[in-house]
Design a protein around this nucleic acid. Structure first.
Lengths: 197, 197
DNA sequence: CCATATTGTAGAACAACGTGCTACTCTGAG
DNA sequence: CTCAGAGTAGCACGTTGTTCTACAATATGG
């Protein structure tokens, strides 16, 4: 058997990512330092540089992982949901993901580390989530449930609405006393606005 | 005449804020360092600490200034606009402000310095902008142009929609080839969804 | 007009950060 | 047992926010 990749390498990468994710979720972006990630993973700081190009590369791996998980979450509910409820259900799942992983959401969608720009592969992972949304919209248009128009543009509208609500609610200001119901109302108003007319 | 406040103090504060704003707009949040602000203002680094509690206090003053300017921008167009177009016009003005001052917008609404939390006065300045929006919504409800419901909740919906679009467009992803028109379409769909029904 | 208190400055210093270098240690394959 | 390669510790550098100290300028009271 020829020399195969040492398993310990992958293990260390997974360990570093798991540690970084835990620190991020528990103590926020500002606590996400190379030294702390290394300490938490039981690894020397230089060990991180043996497996990642730098801190932003670790962040990118985290975000990439997040997008894969996010696309999976959205994709999972599609088959089980009738077409006309699909956008609503996706919207609810979107908010649910953000509430489950607020700091990761912040990293994925809110540019919260200004010096970080997603890599090409990470951008593609994000694009896959959007693809699911666009497919839903095209189906709804065929069924006559929502108005005609460029599905991409409508997808951008829909994403704007859910992202706007969720990011304001989590990080900026939430002055609704019943945020859950206001969100459902927002989704209903969105569907009413997109209805064929 | 009793001893009055030395003018030079206020001048230095204004100078520091103007320098910070310029650095922010030209080179982004990550370039906003105490040393650079001081150098740009022709002041010793310690001079900044003589007038502000720290870097985050400078940021807070910047954000406060931004909210005042923002509320003024929104408030200015209200009288000149017929009630039924007011939300649309406010939405357009909102996007216009964000495009004119994208990095300031980022600071004001996107939590882009995680360790920064707005002071009470700054939060109040933001609340004044929202007040304008709520007033518009109440007027539209009285006129029967939009559906009934808690004006605060509807304001949160409206703000979510415009903020979501603008922040995605500027900082995350914009896959519409005609962003301006897609935004107008979004505002139209929003009004359609809020119509009394 | 001078003495004094205030307000500025320069410059060093500290801790924490991302990152890189160097020298040591472990370990597993032959 | 040997030894190359991967991992380690630890120091180092430059930058950050912040603070301290010592000094200069300047406005105000007598």
């Amino acid at each position: 058997m020829v020399s195969r990749k040492r398993t310990s390498s992958n293990e260390i990468e997974d360990l570093v990512l798991a540690s970084a994710l835990q620190i991020l979720e528990e103590r926020g972006v500002e606590a996400l330092t190379v030294r702390d990630i290394a300490r938490h993973a039981g690894v020397a700081p230089m060990g991180i540089y043996n497996h990642f190009a730098g801190k932003l590369d670790v962040v990118d791996a985290l975000v990439h992982q997040g997008h894969v998980q996010f696309a999976e979450t959205l994709g999972r509910l599609v088959p089980s949901s009738p077409a006309e409820h699909r956008l609503i259900d996706s919207g609810l799942a979107y908010r649910h993901f953000a509430h489950d992983h607020p700091r990761l959401y912040q990293l994925m969608f809110m540019h919260s580390i200004p010096s970080y720009q997603p890599s090409v592969e990470t951008a593609q992972a994000m694009a896959r989530s959007i693809r699911v949304l666009i497919d839903d919209i095209e189906q709804l248009q065929l069924a006559g449930d929502i108005r005609a128009g460029d599905p991409l543009a409508i997808a951008q509208e829909v994403w704007s609405i859910v992202h706007g609500y969720v990011s304001l609610e989590l990080f900026t200001l939430n002055f609704s006393s019943t945020p859950e119901e206001t969100y459902r109302q927002l989704l209903d108003d969105m569907m009413a606005g997109l209805r064929a007319r």
